[in-house]
């Protein structure tokens, strides 16, 4: 610590000379059992059938993927769900060069991207595979890589990654609209 900003520390006489405690270790463990809510429940159930559902904004018709139950544009609960395509394009991406806690299976560098499925109004985050990180582009068309049918569960992890389709990129002026 630089001396010019450090305060002087004083201790009561009764504990003067006692070795200071520098740190204590007090682990915390708390278990929570979440429930996904109505929209996400429908989304997860559809995932088992290899279908991607989005929530429809009751005022603007925008489709949010995954559905979050509420549309921020309307400030209202979204009752209607629609299926969107399992292919779309990369809105933007990040090449991560460090390990991700809890995902030791991912060897850096790996690409995480905002993928917008056709039929959706916003993107959601997904892993991009089947391509070198330095070949990844904004506007690149990608398709969901589904788990084998026998491994499908009611889980977002049914789509471990997305990979390029090889089709021409989405025009620059359509990437974000």
């Amino acid at each position: 610590m630089s001396a010019d900003v450090a305060p002087e520390v004083s201790v009561p006489d009764v504990i003067a000379g006692v070795e200071p405690v520098q740190s204590v270790r007090t682990p915390i463990r708390l278990d929570y059992t979440y429930v996904p809510g109505r929209s996400l429940t429908a989304y997860l159930k559809a995932m088992k059938d290899k279908r991607i559902l989005g929530g429809v904004c009751p005022e603007t018709g925008q489709v949010a993927v995954p559905p979050r139950g509420v549309s921020p544009l309307a400030g209202k609960v979204t009752e209607e769900l629609v299926e969107v395509a399992d292919h779309g394009h990369i809105m933007s991406f990040c090449v991560t060069h460090i390990p991700l806690p809890g995902r030791e299976d991912l060897k850096p560098p790996f690409v995480a991207a905002w993928v917008r499925p056709e039929g959706a109004s916003i993107g959601f985050i997904g892993l991009i595979t089947g391509i070198e990180p330095d070949e990844c582009r904004i506007g690149m068309r990608v398709r969901a890589v589904w788990k084998p049918d026998e491994e499908l569960e009611e889980s977002a992890e049914n789509i471990p990654s997305w990979e390029p389709t090889g089709e021409p990129d989405v025009p620059e002026n359509e990437v974000r609209v």
Partner: peptide, 21 residues
């Protein structure tokens, strides 16, 4: 985050695509 895929490492992973834009 319950019920979602974890591929994003912290705030840097979130803001990097926006910076790229």
């Amino acid at each position: 985050q319950p019920f979602s895929v974890s591929v994003n490492a912290g705030a840097g992973g979130y803001f990097s695509p926006i910076i790229r834009q």
